[in-house]
Nucleic acid binder design. Sequence first.
DNA 1: TCACATCTAGACCAAACGGTCTAGTGGCGT
DNA 2: ACGCCACTAGACCGTTTGGTCTAGATGTGA
Lengths: 185, 185
Amino acid sequence: MTTEELSAKERLVAVSAALLRRHGYHGVGLNDILAAAKVPKGSLYHHFPGGKSDLAMAAADAAGKEMVRIIDDSFQTAGSVEDGITTICHKIAKLFDIFDRADGCPVTSVLFDAPENTEFREKAKQIFDTWIGTTRDYVVEMGMDPDRATDLAEHLLVLLEGAWIMARARQSSDMIRSIPARLFR
Amino acid sequence: MTTEELSAKERLVAVSAALLRRHGYHGVGLNDILAAAKVPKGSLYHHFPGGKSDLAMAAADAAGKEMVRIIDDSFQTAGSVEDGITTICHKIAKLFDIFDRADGCPVTSVLFDAPENTEFREKAKQIFDTWIGTTRDYVVEMGMDPDRATDLAEHLLVLLEGAWIMARARQSSDMIRSIPARLFR
DNA sequence: TCACATCTAGACCAAACGGTCTAGTGGCGT
DNA sequence: ACGCCACTAGACCGTTTGGTCTAGATGTGA
């Protein structure tokens, strides 16, 4: 993650996403984020008047969009539904391995840590639904009927979230890699 | 949750388990726990010299054992593997609904919030493995070969953890209730 | 009834928290 | 050259954090 040539705002979002993914919302201090991003407090509250929660929302959005990019990339080169989904899982598994096998799903880590905040939960739901919608659209495009496609996309997300948790506990991406086998058995 | 006749130590564990499940490790303050359990600080550090992390470990253990009890109960009255697993999911879904559709898996909520602590992660792994082992034993006892049984038990846990997350996001236990359909399709 | 261990009780502490505020800096349009 | 505005910079604030410590209550066996 090169934060070199990025603006202060961009650095803030990137660093937040990374730290929040690993430690959760309440697990990171604002000062940690500021120090890692090399941004003074004044800048934070200039770009994100809402403070920490504002920043977390932006970080979750960014992470959500990156996931959509992964889905797009995976299906662009895919010859079949199975192919596309397998690629998604392998890409995520690889990222998981790269980042010390320590990071959780961005949405879960960032948003569920603060469930007392309705806005957070709504955002999580919305991002999840975007992922499901994106996946479903590709699958429908490839010929599956919409209802089955929605179910498949939801099934994939459930497996992915569950596998992500197991992967963290076991410090191994195996569970993520074995998702396609579970889904298309 | 009647904390009436319990000892201070028991109240501490019960209240911690409940609060941690909802807010995560860093999301609850020691003072919140103490106030809810009506236990002074001195008592905490008498019973749990290790402080908050010590308490969280005990809470996770207690929650882990309760899950084993659910598995036991479900298989005791089950006529088939499918039956037992369906009962497990329904029991968990019911509990989820009762507790405001807000609580996550105890192990995930309690332990993953503090992944910088190796001891925490190990404990999470150990509890997960206990659940998998318990389930697998029942399934083997019912005639399935051990390898397939292990895979089935792991598959169930992955689906359960994933569904739990989705359930929180959507404030609905549907995803948990539909696990058997996904597993035995 | 006295000694002792267990447990309760909460005042107290340094550190860290998220957030506010004022001052200053840099670059761009005119 | 100047004024303006986006942004940087960090001192500072009240609150809350997890944790320590001393004092006292309670029960139990000799």
